[in-house]
Each structure stands twice: as C-alpha cells, then as structure tokens.
C-alpha cells in the first residue's frame, strides 16, 4: 500500500461525496425552508437522469445543454407539484407529508415506466470528461473533478443566494419568523414555491450529472435516497455546510471502509448516523429546533 494508493482511495471517496452532496443538498434546503420531508426527492432525481437520456441520446442535444434542460424540466415539475399538492401539507403532521410524497414516488415510477419501459439506459460521458487526470501514480477521472466542482458551486451558489440576494434574505427571514415576514406584505406561498423550485432544480441537476456515472433504470432512486437522508440527518436538516461535511465524512468512511473493514463498510453510513443522533440529535452543523438557514 503506497501513498498513491491511499490518495487514490481518498479521491474516490471524494467523488462519492460529491454525488451524495448534490442529491442531499436539495433535500436539506427544501426541508430547511418549507419543513417538508420530501420522499419524492429521489424519484425526481431519477426523472432528471431519464430526461438527460432523452436529451442526449434520443434528441442528440449537446451534453451541457441536456443537463441544464433536464434540471429546468425537473424544476418545472417540482413547481407544479408544490403548487398543486405539497403546499397543502405544510405544517401538517409528518405522517401526512410522508403519505403524500411517497404516493408521488409511486406515481412518478409508473409514469417513467410508461414513458421509458423497464430497460436499463445509458448516457455516455462527454468526450471532454471521458478521460482521467494523472497526478504521478494517482488517477482521478475528469468526470469526478466536474462533479466535485459542481458540488462546490452548488454550495457557494446557495450561500450567495441566501446571503447576497434580496429574495434569499427574505426566504431566510421567513424561515426565522413566518408571521413577521407575512405582516411585511411578502407573499409567503410564493417564497416557499421559489425555495422548493431551487431545491428541486439542484435535485434534477444531480440526476442529470449522475446519469453518465452508471446505468439509468427504474428504482435507481431507492438505493440513493436512503443514503441521502442519512447524509442530511448527519449534517443537520436545513444546514447546507452540514450536508457537505456529512457527505464528505460518509463518502470517505465508505471508501476506506471497504478497504480496511469490508464486512461493515455497508453499514458505516448508518453507524455514523446513529452515533450523530445520540451525540447531537440535530446533526453536526444543524441547530437544535431548526432555527435559521
């Protein structure tokens, strides 16, 4: 085992963390603002991946346009879902929210089955990112660099949006004190729709960027959504830096786990989650009681 091997393993953990963060970021953000546990998040991620397949393979659009288009389409679907359904369960018991969002999972699955059938699909990586970067003996696939950079851009983008734009500041204010913001004449429902759309846009983007990683198929969301929830819980619901930190820890724990302790590697994310829940129930960087963004 050389230093290069260790660095290589570290980088593969980083790539895993990047994917995990992109999916978990939207989930965490949506919860932070509108306080809904959105089970359909994974299904929308899958829609993003399938749409990317349609745009790149069927319609032969350039990859870069395809991922943006796919994310925009998923955001539009998200906006419709929010206006028609989800906003009706804000503030309702979590069980109601789970029922509604889980029903959406089943509906989205059947729609995707009708549209795409049950065969596996594959999206090629863009030629620019098909290769790898060599750092001495260490190999890092270019596509992973793109994923990690996108993850950082999403993290920075959310921060800038919330702290540097008027809309973002109003959303933060609404999270802190809904009544006061409403009294000031701000349209709360539309603020929430905007926040929901932003979260779902990143989700669709995650699906689009994740599409060329492996195969696209029905059910690809189930495998990832559980890990995404674990990531959000470890990081603290609503805290994006927390989600990023949690994704990093879980990604690296898994990468080195399968190397050194393969028998328990699969359960490591959940062991970490249990440990965090015992020590800090509100997550690593979350705040007790939710609080501000």
């Amino acid at each position: 085992m050389t230093a290069a091997d260790v660095l290589g393993q570290f980088l593969s953990g980083l790539a895993r963390a990047g994917v995990l963060f992109l999916i978990a970021a939207g989930l965490s953000f949506i919860f932070g603002v509108v306080k809904i546990v959105n089970f359909a998040h994974g299904a929308l991620y899958m829609v993003g991946a399938f749409l990317t397949y349609s745009f790149t393979v069927t319609l032969k659009l350039p990859f870069w346009w395809s991922i943006v288009l796919a994310a925009v389409c998923v955001a539009v679907i998200g906006i419709l879902l929010e206006i028609l359904l989800f906003r009706r369960v804000y503030g309702r018991p979590v069980a109601d929210q789970l029922l509604l969002t889980f029903a959406m999972v089943l509906i989205i699955h059947d729609v995707m089955r009708l549209a795409y059938g049950s065969n596996l699909r594959s999206v090629p990586r863009p030629p620019l990112l098909a290769g790898a970067v060599f750092l001495g003996d260490v190999i890092f696939p270019s596509y992973y660099i793109f994923i990690v950079l996108t993850g950082l851009a999403v993290l920075g983008g959310f921060w800038a949006f919330l702290h540097r734009t008027r809309l973002g500041k109003t959303i933060r204010a609404a999270v802190g004190n809904r009544e006061m913001v409403a009294c000031l004449g701000k349209p709360l429902p539309w603020l929430f729709t905007t926040a929901f759309a932003a979260g779902v846009f990143v989700d669709g983007l995650a699906g689009a960027i994740g599409a060329p990683l492996g195969g696209i198929r029905l059910g690809m969301d189930f495998d990832i959504i559980i890990l995404a929830f674990a990531t959000v819980i470890v990081g603290g619901f609503g805290s994006l830096p927390g989600t990023a930190l949690a994704a990093f820890i879980i990604g690296e724990a898994y990468a080195f786990g399968i190397w050194f302790v393969p028998t328990i590697a699969l359960s490591l994310p959940f062991i970490i989650m249990a440990a965090v829940l015992i020590a800090r129930p509100w997550g690593l960087l979350g705040r007790a009681g939710g609080g501000e963004l």
Binding site: M1, T2, D5, G8, Q9, L11, S12, G13, A15, R16, V19, P141, Y144, G210, L213, G214, G215, G219, M220, F222, D223, I224, Y254, A255, I258, W259, L266
Partner: peptide, 16 residues
Amino acid sequence: PVGETDYTPYITSMLA
C-alpha cells in the same frame, strides 16, 4: 450491495 451505483472505491482499492 445489489443497488450499488458507485463502484469507484472498489475499483481503486482493487487496482491498489
């Protein structure tokens, strides 16, 4: 696991 989508850590550890 059957649902695994990211094999990168497996690949790098096998190559090592």
